[in-house]
Every structure is written in C-alpha cells, then in structure tokens.
Design a protein around this nucleic acid. Sequence first.
DNA 1: GGTAGTCGTAACGCTAATTGTTACGACAGA
DNA 2: TCTGTCGTAACAATTAGCGTTACGACTACC
Lengths: 144, 144
Amino acid sequence: MSANSRLTIAAHALAWIGLYQRQGHEVATSEQIASSANTNPVVIRRLLGELRAAGLVESRRGVGAGWTLTRELGSITLLDVYDAVESGPLFAMHRGTPDQGCVVGHGIQPAMQGIYGGIEEKLRAELARVTMEDVLRDVLAVSR
Amino acid sequence: MSANSRLTIAAHALAWIGLYQRQGHEVATSEQIASSANTNPVVIRRLLGELRAAGLVESRRGVGAGWTLTRELGSITLLDVYDAVESGPLFAMHRGTPDQGCVVGHGIQPAMQGIYGGIEEKLRAELARVTMEDVLRDVLAVSR
DNA sequence: GGTAGTCGTAACGCTAATTGTTACGACAGA
DNA sequence: TCTGTCGTAACAATTAGCGTTACGACTACC
C-alpha cells in the first residue's frame, strides 16, 4: 500500500516529549527528538507543526525554545494524531471515471465508497481506543 | 497515505466478470474489463494475474481466451481480494533504526507493532465481512 | 498447418508522495 | 548584541503506482 511512517514518527515524538516533561524538563527540541528517532530535525519540525495545527503541542521560539504538550498523554488518542498527520481516504477510487454506460462502471464508485466509508469508521474507532498514555506504557514495558 | 486503487480495480474486475457470467457468457477479456474501468488492459491483466495466484480466477489462452471465476461471488470476500493485491503493513516503522540507547527509541517499535497489529486485525475482520456478492448488489442498486 | 485473438510479461516513462538535506530568515532570552 | 531554536522554502533521492508499447506464447478455428 506504500505505507508511510508519519503516524509512527509523530507518536514517537509525542511519547518522547511526554516522558521528557515527566522527568522535569520544560521543553524538548526537534534536535533531541530527531536523534531518538534517527531522522532529521526538519522532519520532526514538519510533523510537530501539523500536530500544533491540531492543538496537540505548542512551540516556543528563541533561545531555550522547543516543544511542549498542550494536553495530558492520556487525553491524546492515536486518532487525534492520525487526523493531524494523515489525509485522504484509505483506499482510492479509479484514476479516470469508469464507463458510465456500463452497469458496473456506473455503480462501482458509489458502492465502494459506501463500503469503504464503513470500514474506515471502524478503523478510526480502533485508533480512538488507544491513547498516547497507552503507547508510552507499552514503550516502557519493552524488555524490562 | 498515498492510497492506491488496486483493491477498487480488482473488485471492479471481479464484479464485472461475475455479472458477465450470469448473463450467460463464458469468459471475459481484459479488454472488456479495462474498457469498463477506464484503464489499460495490461493493468487489468496484472491485477487478475495476482487474483489468479490467489485462486480466485482462472485464465484461458488462445482464441476465445479470457477470464473466469473459480468461486461464487458470495464466497469471495474483500479480504481475499485485499490479500491478493496488497502487501505489507498499513503503517510503516521508522526508516532507520531508532536510537537504542534511548528508552523511547528502544521500545517504540515493539510497542507500535503490537498496537498496529491489533488494529490491522480489526481492519481485516471488517474486510472479511463484505463479499463480492454484497459489492455487486450495491453496484446494481445504484440509481435504480 | 496457418491464422487470428488473447494472455503473459518485460521494459520504459510519467506522476506523485515521502523522506532527507541544506539553507536562511525570524524570534526571544541572556 | 549574540546565540540557539523554530519556520519554512527549496531541492534531490527514492519508491510505488499507473499507463503504454511491444512481442512472444498459446490455442481455437479454418
């Protein structure tokens, strides 16, 4: 499906900021998060920018700048993160318009859109069941 | 997510073949299906080739060649089609290995893989609830 | 045996999305 | 004023999907 890592990296960043703040620090920098996620700080800033647009984090500029959570990890769900960094449907329709003179060509798009819509709702419900608190708990539980 | 249309086109092809056979025809050609789906016959042959590998359709060569279903539409689910034409996980992990010296970097991949695994199972269960018979019914019900 | 129609598949180009990278201005605390 | 960080533009590299052309393989029919 040509899956991407946007949701994974965004969750990584949120978990990192959340843990860092629990350790008493004020702000986390994109540099620190990028180092943990083994990627480039700009990639982190871009993703966190989308999370900020969704109201999940805030950023400060200037010296001592960085990122802070605006909510508790327990009140942020994977669905919140998904909506912030992903867009568009899970399954795409035809590139070109199907033959409207054909019975199947005429009915296939409304039919599939209805089916896909229901399936995506279930996916969203599952994403909404997992909070970033759950994620951090699972992270800390690894190889203990 | 950069969604693709493979599942949609594969379902279109199966519905088309199924309806065509119900109208008394023996085999359907990639040319006919491509015309209905407004794409290239090679695209259809490639997708149907994957469905054949999964045992959902058969092909005949030579004059009067074409494609036939090997099962009733009612016994083919969207999950069968999905498994035949899609591969890999819905959500990707990091490109590079996260910092194993960092608590989050160390635990994030196992944690997310567990969470993603559960979510994908739910998605698969939903796909398994829809048969190609359901799809064809919905297709024929459009704008009646 | 030849002909014609269709599949099977390789090869290539185009488009779009993702990711990484460099660069530099904007901003704010010291 | 200086310094560290964000904000963002710009570009390259990589990858997947899709469309297209081409041609060999196969088989029903004459």
